[in-house]
């Protein structure tokens, strides 16, 4: 880790202490109150609700209820701790019934997507900043559109008199400019498609006339810009898409959890 911040240290320290304490308490309570699943259940549900409250905090930015940054730190560390609580609640065993398996899967997906999101949020911004060409996600289609118009104008417009370039444009560039491209390749930081296009343009340049060279120069710039936009689109979209798993499933999980509570109490005549 490039910068091991002090808050990381304290966060991890607290998490570690809490983990050890929880495991110790678990061993103790499992002896004293062998049937204490309801206790861990309520604690687990409480933790899950606190985690969900972060979403509410985001909707109330005008209230003085703590920084979002602090909330997120709590969210992350408590999230990890909640996974432990979950395992304790399950007594480190796999569930059996269809309902409980579904419930466990929901929990796993929500926490798994959370961890994935955490990694993405730490890795992708740095890559975006390194690449440069900062752009607001919602503006990308418009910018893309403008680039396409400009590229078409350069390659096919009234001033362009180069069948070679027009052919190259129709064959290689028209598709490239027509919409978002190479989402997955950008995510894995592959520059292959860009390099292929640039190489194609370079080939033409070697044989082209002066006028054609100027056009190719311009097209190269446009291709690079479009590639930069695609890169930003791919990474920024990924930074948004993981929440499409995390947030909707959270609410699914809460509904299943509510039913779980009803079943546990309705079918036990008490908390057993």
């Amino acid at each position: 880790m490039k910068r091991f911040r002090r808050q990381h240290f304290w966060g991890l320290a607290v998490l570690l202490v809490a983990t050890v304490a929880a495991l110790g308490l678990d061993a103790h309570f499992r002896r004293a109150l062998p049937d204490y699943a309801f206790l861990t259940g309520w604690i687990l549900l409480g933790a899950m609700l606190v985690l969900t409250l972060y979403n509410a905090r985001k909707k109330l930015p005008f209230l003085p209820i703590g920084n979002s940054e602090t909330w997120l730190q709590v969210h992350i560390y408590l999230g990890f701790f909640t996974v432990l609580l979950f395992l304790i609640h399950l007594n480190f065993r796999l569930p059996h019934g269809q309902f409980e398996i579904t419930l466990a899967w929901l929990f796993a997906l929500v926490s798994g997507s959370g961890v994935a999101g955490l990694i993405l949020s730490r890795v992708l911004p740095r890559r975006l900043a390194t690449r440069g060409g900062e752009v607001i996600y919602e503006k990308i289609p418009a910018l893309s559109h403008a680039l396409k118009a400009e590229a078409e104008n350069v390659a096919l417009g009234a001033g362009a008199r180069s069948p070679v370039i027009a052919e190259f444009y129709a064959r290689r560039l028209a598709g490239f400019f027509s919409g978002p491209q190479n989402g997955w390749l950008h995510l894995v930081e592959s520059r292959r498609p860009l390099n292929a296009l640039i190489a194609g343009l370079d080939d033409l340049r070697r044989t082209g006339s002066d006028a054609e060279r100027a056009m190719l120069e311009k097209l190269t710039t446009l291709v690079r810009q479009k590639d930069g936009l695609d890169y930003h689109r791919s990474l920024q979209l990924t930074l948004k898409l993981w929440l499409f798993v995390h947030i909707p499933l959270t609410y699914g999980l809460l509904i299943f959890t509510a039913l779980h509570v009803v079943l546990v109490f309705g079918f036990s005549g008490g908390a057993r």
């Binding site: 440069g132 060409g133 900062e134 752009v135 503006k139 418009a142 680039l147 930069g228």
Partner: peptide, 11 residues
Amino acid sequence: MSEPLAQNFDA
């Protein structure tokens, strides 16, 4: 590694 800034959009 740094790409040229994208065109200025409607600011």
